[in-house]
Amino acid sequence: MVIAIQLDKVSKKFRIPLDKQDGLKGSLISLLSGKANYREFPALKDISFSVQKGEFIGIIGPNGSGKSTLLKIIANILRPDHGKMRINGDLSPFLELGLGFQGELSGKENIYLYGTVLGMSKKEIDTKMKNILAFSELKDFMTMPLKNYSSGMHVRLAFSVAIQAKSDILLFDEVLAVGDASFQNKCYKYFKSIKGKKTVLFVSHDLNSIQQYSDRAILIQNGRVVANGATKKVIDYYSRKQSTH
């Protein structure tokens, strides 16, 4: 077994400003008064777990429990305060589909923009253009400015580019809540097709899709790993806990 992701006691605190005082004045005031102008909020506390290569992990937990922060740390967007982390392989984070999309630009221009943001080269995008157009079913809208797309078309275009990423570790943060039934079906097929081949961390509030795809689930509450194991067990435990509140 090869380990794809390993976290060892990873912790992260955020500084929450007490007043909205960006800029020199705010810093001067807090400097002169000798008081910290923020309070610390521990977003993640001693998170440890490991993920095998090819595993599909569902991550669940209430709002504000630290799920997104966790993905951002794994994606190297945030730096942990403490703890060790090891990532084995190329990684693509999908914390927002269509990241960097520009409404003024055409569908095609946005494919190139988003593709390069996701780490593809222009050449790669050229060769994958056929697949992208086929998957998105938006071939006839390529010259239209993105601002005139419906939100469903928007997501279809973004997802069609995103799935071209060749990384072997993929992070998804609540990105599939939109789209009609036929698109949902396509997504389902895509996740089926990468299952076992790619390592996936999948954050969602939709417990059905977690149940459907995941080999294992991790429950996070108040910045801690509360449960980690068989998907059904973790979901049941989470549901029971929620209903007792």
Binding site: I87, D90, T116
Partner: peptide, 19 residues
């Protein structure tokens, strides 16, 4: 986490801004 297509990203971002 090795990505080697940064030159393309730089060009793409620069041209997009110019456009």
């Amino acid at each position: 986490m090795t990505r080697t297509n940064y030159p393309d990203l730089i060009k793409e971002l620069a041209f997009t801004d110019f456009k």
